[in-house]
Write a protein that binds this DNA or RNA. Structure first.
Lengths: 351, 351
DNA sequence: TTGTATGCGTTATCAT
DNA sequence: ATGATAACGCATACAA
């Protein structure tokens, strides 16, 4: 038989279509006896329910969209996907990933979003909230949960984000207690219409600097210059190194927005005859696999866990369960490895 | 309006439902004038076609399943996903990832596979062909393309795989021409019912060894012992190091099945006072991001490209286009960095 | 080129 | 607990 339908199963089992439907979906009001009959018949015919037909009839698509900024194979994004999948798959939900890398795609996606009846919920990861998005976001009647999004509630039904502010505060405190009094923060160049949430770290660092400004600590903010094309990590690193070394007083510690850049920076610094961590401490952000391989001290993010939490929130929303804490912040974790150390007093001035 | 249907659009545009359907899907037999009318009406109503309804009516789900072994956030898998997505998304296909980590899941998945009418095609990545799978695979009437699967055709309509044999041959040749005459291959422990295709590399190395056995080169195969739980990479590395150093004659070069393990091995070797690459060369496999960060010489695999090729094959299959070369092998690329070097004659004997 | 009518495979409402 | 039947929203064969 080419493609058995529910009718075939019903006939073979000697019951009605409705009963087959009920039996196969595990509805309560079916005798175990008939349920077994039906199951047997279904097995025999190699039958499974058609998701499309179910979706059409029930209004539930059993799919949730995961929209990420940047490519699907990026460390953070693929981790979130994994986490989301882990939570949703057991309940029969498919997760449909979508990714967006530039502004025009973003606009197009969001302008279509409110119309879409092709998923039951949508998870949005690591997007800055652009004005244009806000309207669209509110126009969606689907459950919407954010991952690593600005915590301003009202746009997402729920969200889970890394607490960047707490992270940078911890970082600054750590470096201070290691004796560092001249700390820099390196951020990648971020175009104005870009979408990543990482720029929040810059702000968080600035705030932390502000909070510690009184006790004579020096802070500097280093950013790569704008370019047409995105810089390679090593070009970026050498540019940042140059800026670092041309400061009036060379910092003894550097926070870097991303492990990748941090590692490139360490390489570049060593090339310039600066010892890491003896002469200068470097602290990354993420704790991706490479951080471990490179023995980089870093602030850990856990994308899989974020994805799981997001997945669970989706499930609750879908069941109309009230969320105790719709918007959560996750505390980051400092991972100390081999690129940070106590300041070597005496070496701290200049080269 | 809650959820506009095609009927609403038809009414607003003053045409029939059929015309709306045709216009919106870009069928040829529609006047540009009416198409515009329809588009306008659709925009105004915030209407998009329901995938479920389309799928039901047309028999095309516009989705393709990507099944991978191991987690979605693994380097290889997420790369393949990205590549597949890049090719399929522009044509309106959703890609639905699914992953499988153990044998029982695999059995369940494959036993359900033939029945499923929930996707138009299926891409299967990095699975060893188990006997049980073969039947199921043949029972599927969906287009099926494999990524990094054994090249035995007949089970997949198309496939694209890394040429492991060629890779290992290249690796052995390279090491030989660097003067190495005692070469080892390190593989992770792979349970008998496991699914990864990487074990093929072991075989390929054995074959390459065979082919070069005549001219006095020594080969050894090192495998981690079986354990209940999978070993951590560093535990694995220290175990392999121990085996390596307890060989009658210590090899001067080692191929390692995976970058991750290779890097851990390098660390362990250095801890044991062996200089890499001066005393011993290490060659990884994959060229994941960590390989670059760790300056590891390695054999490059390009998962994104593999995914793209698989995606294109799916598209062709879906269009019933004949494939010139349904089953392709991709030549690997040697990437020389800082863990391989010419043998230091004289140091080559023992520690 | 456009309209009419039917069917796609389920779920859900209402009976029984 | 089970059965009959009307949606669900669209695509397509056929007619005009």
């Amino acid at each position: 038989m080419a493609k058995p339908t529910i009718a075939n199963v019903a006939q073979l089992a000697g019951v009605s279509q409705a009963t087959v439907s009920r039996a196969l979906r595990g509805a309560t009001n079916v005798t175990e006896a008939t349920r077994n009959k039906v199951r047997q018949a279904a097995d025999q015919l190699n039958f499974t329910l058609s998701k499309s037909a179910s979706a059409l009839a029930s209004g539930k698509t059993m799919r949730v969209i995961l929209l990420v900024s940047g490519k699907l194979n990026e460390w953070f994004n693929s981790g979130v996907l994994q986490g989301v999948y882990e939570e949703l798959a057991p309940f029969g939900y498919d997760v449909t990933p979508a990714f967006i890398t530039d502004r025009s795609e973003l606009d197009r996606f969001f302008s279509q979003l409110p119309k879409s009846r092709n998923s039951d919920a949508i998870i949005i990861s690591s997007f800055q909230l652009m004005p244009a998005m806000r309207e669209q976001l509110q126009a969606i009647d689907l459950p919407t949960v954010g991952v690593n999004v600005p915590a301003e509630s009202g746009y997402f039904d729920a969200s889970i984000s890394i607490d960047n502010y707490s992270a940078m505060t911890m970082a600054v405190r750590l470096l201070r207690s290691l004796g560092h009094t001249n700390i820099a923060f390196c951020s990648d160049y971020i175009p104005a219409d870009m979408i990543y949430n990482t720029s929040q770290r810059t702000q968080a660092f600035a705030d932390a600097a502000q909070a510690n400004a009184t006790d004579g600590i020096m802070f500097s903010l280093l950013t790569a210059d704008a370019h047409d094309a995105p810089l390679s990590k090593s070009d970026l690193a050498s540019q940042l190194t140059a800026k670092l070394l041309s400061l009036p007083e060379r910092p003894t510690a550097v926070c870097v927005e991303t492990d990748q850049v941090a590692i490139a920076l360490v390489k570049e610094l060593r090339k310039q005859q600066l010892n890491v961590p003896e002469d200068i401490s470097v602290l990354g952000f993420d704790d991706a696999e490479i951080a471990q391989a490179a023995d980089l001290s870093t602030i850990r993010q856990e994308p899989i866990e974020l994805g799981r939490i997001a997945g669970r929130k989706v499930l609750q929303l879908l069941r109309n369960e009230p969320l105790e804490h719709p918007h959560e912040l996750q505390d980051p974790l400092l991972v100390l490895r081999n690129t940070t150390s106590r300041i070597d007093s005496g070496t701290a001035t200049s080269e």
